[in-house]
Computed example of a mutant assay.
Amino acid sequence: MTAAEQTAPETIPDGMGTIVEPGTIRFERLLPGPIERVWAYLTESEKRGQWLASGEMEPRAGTAFSLHFDNSGLSPVRIPTPERFHRYDAGITTAHQITRFEPPRLLAITWGGGTEEPSEVTFELAEEGEGVRLILTHSRLPDARSMTNVGAGWHSHLSILADKLSGRTPPSFWTLFGKLEPVYS
């Protein structure tokens, strides 16, 4: 498939992230409410672990917390982990910090930061009819490779969140990511 075919309008999945400035990608989703339920899926370890990563967080700005990712366990639909991600088969734990905590409307956290400066993820929620508008903005990404991985990753995780909130069984994270990575690159 050529690059033009990969990005033809009929092949671009719904809910694509938008580059809003260099190093910043933004996603929007309309999710089933109420807002307190969606907030719980962002902030409560057990619920967040169903679509992103588990990890207890103290509900206030300035606190550090860890996220434990198990992307293979986000769906009962199991496929083999792609070879280049085998090192994550047992999961991976990452360190973060809450930079803003304004329930039930805004959560901002640091992201990454191993050998590079951490980026930042902001979740904004707003009631919209019976639904909840989620705006996720990931900023301070250092390069195009990061934008590709983050774009495909967040798109996949948000699709799983929408399925969970709607009572649907999500597909495998790796299936979603594998389809989205070439589109985001």
Results as ranks from 00 to 15, higher is better:
residue 168 R to F: 04
residue 30 L to G: 04
residue 90 A to G: 13
residue 141 L to W: 02
residue 18 T to V: 15
residue 16 M to Y: 11
residue 61 A to Y: 04
residue 132 V to W: 00
residue 7 T to A: 04
residue 168 R to T: 08
residue 144 A to P: 02
residue 49 G to F: 04
residue 155 H to I: 07
residue 125 L to Y: 02
residue 4 A to F: 10
residue 116 E to I: 09
residue 84 R to I: 14
residue 139 S to T: 09
residue 128 E to C: 06
residue 179 K to A: 07
residue 63 T to F: 06
residue 73 G to P: 00
residue 184 Y to W: 01
residue 81 T to G: 13
residue 39 W to M: 00
residue 136 L to T: 13
residue 18 T to S: 12
residue 18 T to K: 11
residue 40 A to Q: 11
residue 100 R to Y: 03
residue 177 F to W: 15
residue 74 L to I: 00
residue 57 M to F: 04
residue 128 E to T: 12
residue 101 F to W: 13
residue 174 W to E: 10
residue 154 W to G: 14
residue 36 E to L: 13
residue 145 R to D: 10
residue 90 A to S: 02
residue 3 A to G: 15
residue 32 P to G: 09
residue 154 W to L: 13
residue 138 H to P: 09
residue 22 P to W: 00
residue 120 E to H: 05
residue 15 G to S: 07
residue 181 E to W: 07
residue 109 I to C: 11
residue 176 L to V: 04
residue 12 I to Q: 08
residue 19 I to G: 03
residue 105 R to T: 06
residue 166 S to L: 05
residue 121 V to T: 03
residue 156 S to H: 07
residue 176 L to A: 02
residue 15 G to A: 09
residue 128 E to H: 10
residue 28 E to H: 12
residue 6 Q to F: 12
residue 94 T to G: 03
residue 122 T to M: 08
residue 56 E to S: 11
residue 104 P to G: 04
residue 112 G to P: 06
residue 28 E to L: 11
residue 23 G to K: 02
residue 181 E to N: 06
residue 162 A to M: 13
residue 88 Y to I: 15
residue 169 T to A: 09
residue 86 H to L: 06
residue 102 E to R: 01
residue 130 E to Y: 14
residue 84 R to K: 01
residue 124 E to N: 02
residue 18 T to H: 15
residue 77 V to F: 05
residue 42 L to T: 08
residue 25 I to M: 14
residue 106 L to T: 05
residue 63 T to Q: 08
residue 59 P to H: 02
residue 14 D to L: 03
residue 95 A to Q: 15
residue 107 L to H: 06
residue 45 S to Y: 11
residue 109 I to V: 10
residue 48 R to T: 12
residue 110 T to A: 08
residue 102 E to I: 15
residue 138 H to I: 13
residue 163 D to N: 05
residue 109 I to D: 05
residue 43 T to H: 02
residue 26 R to V: 12
residue 101 F to E: 01
residue 13 P to F: 10
residue 105 R to S: 09
residue 175 T to Y: 11
residue 120 E to W: 11
residue 80 P to L: 02
residue 162 A to S: 08
residue 17 G to Q: 12
residue 91 G to L: 08
residue 92 I to M: 15
residue 148 T to L: 10
residue 35 I to W: 01
residue 116 E to D: 14
residue 184 Y to M: 10
residue 130 E to H: 09
residue 78 R to A: 07
residue 63 T to D: 13
residue 25 I to R: 09
residue 5 E to C: 03
residue 83 E to C: 08
residue 107 L to P: 00
residue 140 R to T: 10
residue 6 Q to M: 15
residue 60 R to Q: 14
residue 64 A to D: 10
residue 116 E to R: 12
residue 35 I to F: 00
residue 45 S to V: 03
residue 114 G to L: 14
residue 130 E to L: 04
residue 170 P to Q: 03
residue 13 P to A: 01
residue 172 S to H: 00
